[in-house]
Design a binder for these strands. Structure first.
Length: 504
RNA sequence: GGCGCUAUGGUGUAGUUGGUUAACACGCCGCCCUCUCAAGGCGGAGAUCACGGGUUCGAGCCCCGUUAGCGCUGCCA
């Protein structure tokens, strides 16, 4: 039978980077073995599920380039099948009706409640099989149900024995039945519960390998019990280590904000391939030391055996804007930006410039050559796509801001620049042809003539032309900015010096 | 409370059957290059392999215990 895997997120918020990685690993595995990758939206929690969230999941997968092979399955559509499944287990005797009135519990005290009940149960000597309805006769159970008494359906877990499965990542897993409660399959309002729905859907979808977060590792035993009760063959399982925050706590939107949301990376200028590459290396390692890998290489090298067992820390600093996300992710993005084929990068830059209202159609037409040259020049030191419209704004617009530190360091320190720069502009006016080399020759000659260091003029010019203190080789900048714009910018400094003089 | 999982420099990882100075990437520091900043090149700091026992001629790798972190334990998913 061919391999079939699925990514099954619940649409209760943005797409978490941990979920995104789960999707990636499933996809990689499917592609590696020539199997199929399916998407199932687990929207059975009507209270929390939103359409916006479903959209964000779909968009997120698309952004990462993870295509799915069949129609999306919405779990809520299978509601009736799940209910019937539970009833079938009731019929076969594998499950029983529990007429205990439902106890309302709020999300906030769940963990606490669990511990308290566990302690109370231990004190009273009761266990998971102490439910008084467990041994209720079939007739009595039927009678009460027909009388309209509400009931939940619970799986009747045997008293003796253990479940066992081979996890592709964590190895042999065993669990005593003693540790497993008679889990609820169907709520008293007829609503099927997670463990049941997952199993039924996975069976129906023909899932052969379940690859998911480690938070499901211990619950897997319950699901295996359901597979057995249903007389179905359980799939293979592979659980993935979790992704943690720097303080090793769970990475959550509430506590850690937008760093955990995949869309943040799209919106803040990540190249999808870079982020995907970074994600792939979080918890998995190839059998080579090569880390920058194309999707094809990732697919070719991927194996469940390469997945580690320890949780991974996603390293970022909330207080440092330069380290708003993992430094390695940022590095990898920069690496992609400066080395990927321009043909692949260009559309992303176009989208970014469009978004910043800096795009001109000429860049793909008459000015294509200029655009290409400019991008090649500036992409070498950019970290995100955003840099093209922010640090790189001066290349595409006359309306750009000056970095305050740059102005101080390169312009205000030397008042003579008030005369030097316009004079430089006059010299450059005669340069022919206008190239990096001729500009360099002219500038150096003028520096000597004026008796100043070339560096002074170079740095000042950089700030005048780009608003920045840092950037590419200045002569290359002259060339791409062009003669007209360069001269105009060199001559546009008077007002500042007026300010400086006023202050003095 | 119970059960489970995990534990290699700041972070991500390698370290396949135990065998010389624990490897790679990011980050950090320095030097070179240089008009700045990156990139690149060279070099460096940083790990008593969580801790304690054991097995062994020899353990990051095997065994036991401890601790810590995380997960599950719900008529949430």
């Amino acid at each position: 039978m061919s391999i079939r895997v699925r990514f099954a997120p619940s649409p209760t918020g943005y797409l978490h980077i941990g979920s995104a990685r789960t999707a990636l690993f499933n996809w990689l595995y499917a592609r590696h073995v020539g199997g199929r990758f399916l998407l199932r939206i687990e929207d059975t929690d009507v209270q929390r599920s939103t359409e916006a969230s479903t959209r964000s999941i779909i968009e997120g997968l698309e952004w990462l380039g993870l295509d799915y092979d069949e129609e999306i399955i919405f779990q809520s559509d299978n509601f009736e099948k799940h209910r019937l499944g539970a009833l079938r287990l009731l019929e076969s005797g594998a499950a029983y009706r529990d007429f205990t009135p439902k106890q309302e519990r709020t999300d906030s005290n769940v963990k606490q409640g669990i511990a308290e009940r566990a302690r109370a149960a231990a004190a009273e000597g009761t266990d998971h099989r102490s439910n008084p309805f467990r041994e209720l006769s079939r007739e009595e159970s039927e009678r009460r149900a027909e009388a309209g008494e509400p009931f939940a359906v619970r799986l009747k877990v045997a008293r003796e024995g253990q479940t066992r499965f081979e996890d592709a990542v964590y190895g042999t897993q065993e669990r005593d039945y003693r540790e497993i409660e008679d889990l609820v399959l169907l709520r008293s309002d007829g609503h099927p519960l997670y463990n049941l729905s997952v199993v039924l859907d996975d069976i129906e979808m023909g899932i052969t390998d379940v690859i998911r977060g480690q938070d499901h590792l211990t619950n897997t035993h319950k699901q295996i019990l359901i597979y057995e009760a249903l007389g179905a063959q359980a799939p293979r399982f592979a659980h993935l280590p979790l992704i943690l925050a720097p303080n090793k706590s769970k990475l959550s939107k509430r506590k850690h904000g937008e760093v955990v949301s995949l869309t943040t990376y799209r919106d803040r200028g990540f190249v999808p391939a870079a982020f995907r590459n970074f994600l792939a290396l979080l918890g998995w390692s190839p059998d080579t030391e090569q880390e920058i890998m194309t999707l094809e290489e990732l697919t070719a090298k991927f194996s469940l055996g390469g997945i580690g067992r320890a949780n991974a820390v996603f390293n970022f600093s909330e207080s440092d804007p330069r380290q708003w996300t993992d430094a390695k992710a940022l590095w990898m993005n920069a690496e992609y930006i400066r080395t990927m084929p321009l043909a692949e990068l260009a559309p992303m830059i176009k989208a970014e410039l469009r978004h910043a209202k800096l795009w001109r159609d000429e860049y793909e037409d008459d000015e294509r050559e200029w655009f290409t040259k400019t991008v090649e020049l500036i992409r070498q030191r950019f970290f995100t796509l955003k840099d093209f419209s922010e640090q790189g704004r001066a290349y595409f617009s006359e309306d750009f801001d000056f970095d305050e530190a740059a102005r101080k360091k390169n312009l205000h320190k030397e008042l003579r620049l008030k005369e030097l720069l316009p004079a430089l502009a006059r010299k450059l006016e005669e340069v022919e042809p206008w190239t990096a080399d001729t500009c360099e020759a002219a500038l150096r000659a003028y520096a000597e003539e004026a008796g100043v260091k070339a560096g002074l003029l170079i740095n000042a010019a950089r700030t005048m032309l780009t608003g920045q203190a840092v950037g590419p080789s200045m002569f290359e900048v002259f060339e791409v900015i062009g003669r007209d714009r360069s001269l105009r910018r060199l001559r546009s400094m008077e007002p500042w010096f007026q300010d400086e003089l006023d202050k003095a």
